[in-house]
Amino acid sequence: MTERAEVSPWPFVGMAGMACAFFLYGASVLFAPWWVVVLLVLVWVALFVVARAWWTPRPRWVPGVAVVALLVWVGVVALLSAG
């Protein structure tokens, strides 16, 4: 019998956070100019690529990528509401 490696739950947590961020980025179309939404989605895609790349080598860092995605969205919304 072969032993199975223990599966870390952190990448799954991070990808759930990325899914939440994606819905926030998409909902930005309700109040943000279209070009801001396009830039947000491009940032999300880049962060998603990083999260996928870190799935196996750095599983505990994937939730951090989701946190960064949420902080980027909050920062953009704050800038839009201030201007």
Rank of each mutant, 00 (worst) to 15 (best):
A51N: 03
G17M: 04
V67Y: 06
M18N: 00
W44I: 02
V43G: 02
L39D: 13
P57N: 11
V41A: 11
A16E: 15
A51G: 03
F48S: 11
V68I: 15
A66N: 04
A78Q: 06
A53W: 10
M18L: 15
V41H: 04
A5D: 07
W10L: 15
A5G: 10
V62I: 03
G83D: 04
T2V: 06
W10V: 02
W61M: 09
A32Q: 08
S28W: 03
R52M: 15
L71W: 08
A51Q: 01
L70Y: 09
A46T: 05
A27T: 04
G17S: 10
F12Q: 12
L40F: 06
P63A: 11
M15L: 13
F48M: 12
F48A: 14
V50G: 00
L40H: 04
G83T: 13
L71P: 01
W34P: 00
T56L: 07
M18A: 02
A32V: 05
V67H: 03
A19H: 08
V29I: 15
G83L: 08
F22V: 05
C20Q: 15
F23Q: 08
S81Y: 10
M1Y: 05
P9T: 03
V7N: 07
C20W: 07
Y25M: 13
A53F: 01
P57F: 11
L79K: 09
L47P: 00
V72H: 03
W55M: 10
V13P: 01
P57Q: 11
L47G: 01
A27W: 10
A53L: 11
F31M: 07
G26K: 03
F48V: 07
M18R: 01
G83H: 08
W10S: 12
W54Y: 07
V65I: 15
P57S: 09
L70I: 07
V37H: 04
A19N: 09
R60S: 12
P57C: 06
F23V: 14
L47N: 02
R58C: 10
V65H: 02
L71N: 09
L42M: 14
V13D: 09
F31T: 13
L24W: 12
R58Q: 13
S81Q: 13
V37R: 04
V65C: 01
S8V: 00
V7E: 15
A69N: 00
R52K: 11
G26R: 05
C20H: 14
G17I: 01
P59F: 08
